[in-house]
Design a protein around this nucleic acid. Sequence first.
DNA 1: CCTTGACTTCGAGCGCACTCGAAGAGTGAG
DNA 2: CTCACTCTTCGAGTGCGCTCGAAGTCAAGG
Lengths: 123, 123
Amino acid sequence: MPYSISDVAERTNLTTHTLRYYERDDLLLGPVARDAGGRRVYDDHDVSWIVMLTCLRGTGMPIRDMRRYAELVRAGEGNEDARLALLDAHRRRVIAQLAEVTEHLGAVEDKIALYTERLQISA
Amino acid sequence: MPYSISDVAERTNLTTHTLRYYERDDLLLGPVARDAGGRRVYDDHDVSWIVMLTCLRGTGMPIRDMRRYAELVRAGEGNEDARLALLDAHRRRVIAQLAEVTEHLGAVEDKIALYTERLQISA
DNA sequence: CCTTGACTTCGAGCGCACTCGAAGAGTGAG
DNA sequence: CTCACTCTTCGAGTGCGCTCGAAGTCAAGG
């Protein structure tokens, strides 16, 4: 299935600007195909890769690491160990980050409870 | 208990630069006390407020909202409803964010499982 | 007295990830 | 053919949250 850049933008919740930026920044697995008029034509493979990128970004991976991961995938089979190492290191960071946020959220919730209580007393 | 700026930096994992920046940016409840030589002297009240700030920042609250919250607290009692609204809105965003990150993490873990499997087969 | 080192202010600079806008070209409906 | 629309490239700009460095002050130890 062929998709225009705006189709992909809609499906991925990225802007067309960001999609071009990702391509320029070597985050895609290769240059996107073009139609006769020079417009980008994405296929399902492109889209699923971009969705993967949004998962990495959405978990806080820096662009530079995403580029590194794209390089590994572009290099082809045989470096699965390196890909695994990259993703697993990321996974550990995300889990640590989730734990930290959850802990800090607890402190915020304590404050919320305190204000709620105070408001109930004064009501 | 009095603390120097570097004491506070150590306790809060902020840099002295960041502590001055927060004060300049009106994130504290007032100007920090000074000794005879003009050096900042923080007390426990200051420190616990700064710790609260790190919880807000650590859950992704923008500086501008932290300033707004500080303004409310500075304004004194009587606006607990507004403080509660601010923190609760933040809480909702954090929870949504945690859910999103967790979901994206799932996709990353699927990829990890895939590479792990592939490596076991080839080993 | 002199040096060391932690502090002060101030404004500038940085890294990140977009985000925008100008200027131009191809497409599709009326 | 014309108009509106969507796309193209490119470089510059934005917003955020620090981060840094220069130049100066002050206090304590030797």
